[in-house]
């Protein structure tokens, strides 16, 4: 009997140790990623400063010129357009779903959002090339510029906007429905209309969480690869209008991984772009998750 119990306790203890090692390995994994990417980017960083790399415009890998400005600007602009479009859409959708909608609307919209969330990135890319790109080149761009291929900043922003919608709506809905109903009732009892209640009670108390949600969506949009790659045009230039082609960082990585071993410093340059993405997304995620955890803990 004692023997058996000893075995049971031993099994309990060993399993605890094994599992703890796995948990600690997950911290180590993040660190390994950072170190690995940094080490590979090191050759480039040894003869260019980070500031130089990020602000130079010329991208000529064969002549050892690595200016990341076009890619960084493209990434920022694409993300900005996507968020500008997605923010009002997801905000109003989430408000409607939590504050106004009848059950049948919810039963229709939630599954639709689930589908959006589950579709793979490459499918969005196919949709973008088949619908958005021709739409822009034939119907939208001619009103503003002489010629546009359709593979543009605007197309990338639109596709990305749809891709971040489910994430933003679900985060907003989670935040809004965490606001206690008594607050709404108190506001309504004072004669406020539903929108006044939403604006002054629901939204006001969810502001920190909403900022975190937006930051999270930004980091998702920045790292999105295939869908954007398929509609962005892939020209290493700084886009001057929404009808210009662009070339975000993930697309740069995806397009060139095959040939990167043949040109000196090229691999380092590509790994540097992965490192930028990694660091920015890591920081953004960390900040927004900490805020969201705080918000949740308060409820």
């Amino acid at each position: 009997m004692i023997h058996r119990n000893r075995r049971r306790v031993r099994r309990d203890k060993t399993s605890a140790i094994v599992m703890m090692v796995m948990v600690i390995a997950s911290f180590a994994f993040v660190a390994a990623m950072a170190v690995g990417l940094y080490l590979k980017a090191q050759p480039l960083l040894s003869d260019h400063s980070i500031w130089q790399l990020l602000t130079a415009r010329e991208w000529k890998p064969s002549q050892n010129e690595f200016g990341f400005l076009p890619f960084v600007m493209s990434t920022l602009l694409v993300t900005a357009i996507a968020l500008l479009l997605a923010l009002p859409l997801s905000f109003f959708t989430a408000v409607y779903l939590t504050e106004y909608a009848r059950t049948w609307v919810k039963k229709l919209v939630y599954p639709a959002l689930d589908i959006l969330a589950s579709l793979p990135s490459v499918i969005y890319g196919v949709w973008g090339t088949l619908l958005i790109v021709p739409l822009i080149s034939k119907h939208i761009a001619p009103h503003f510029v002489e010629f546009s291929s359709g593979y543009t900043l605007l197309a990338s922003g639109l596709v990305l906007c749809v891709m971040v919608l489910p994430l933003m709506v679900s985060l907003f809905v989670e935040l809004f429905s965490a606001v206690p109903n008594q607050l709404r009732e108190a506001s309504t009892a004072m004669g406020a209309t539903p929108w006044q209640t939403t604006r002054r009670v629901v939204v006001r108390s969810s502001i920190p969480g909403m900022i975190a949600a937006v930051v999270l969506a930004v980091s998702k949009a920045m790292g999105e690869t295939i869908a954007v790659l398929m509609v962005c045009g892939n020209m290493p230039q700084i886009p001057h209008s929404v009808f210009d082609a662009c070339y975000p960082l993930p697309a740069l990585l995806a397009n060139n991984y095959g040939e990167m071993l043949s040109v000196p410093r090229y691999e380092a340059a590509l790994m540097f772009s992965a490192l930028i993405l990694f660091v920015v997304v890591l920081l953004f995620n960390l900040i927004s998750r900490i805020i969201l955890n705080r918000v949740k803990a308060k409820d």
Partner: peptide, 28 residues
Amino acid sequence: RLGYFCRLTFDVLYGIPSIVYGAFAFII
């Protein structure tokens, strides 16, 4: 505390773009 940090780590890992995973795996 360990649980909190572990969950945070996985939230962050979840957010890291798959292209970065690809690049990292390529290095390895």
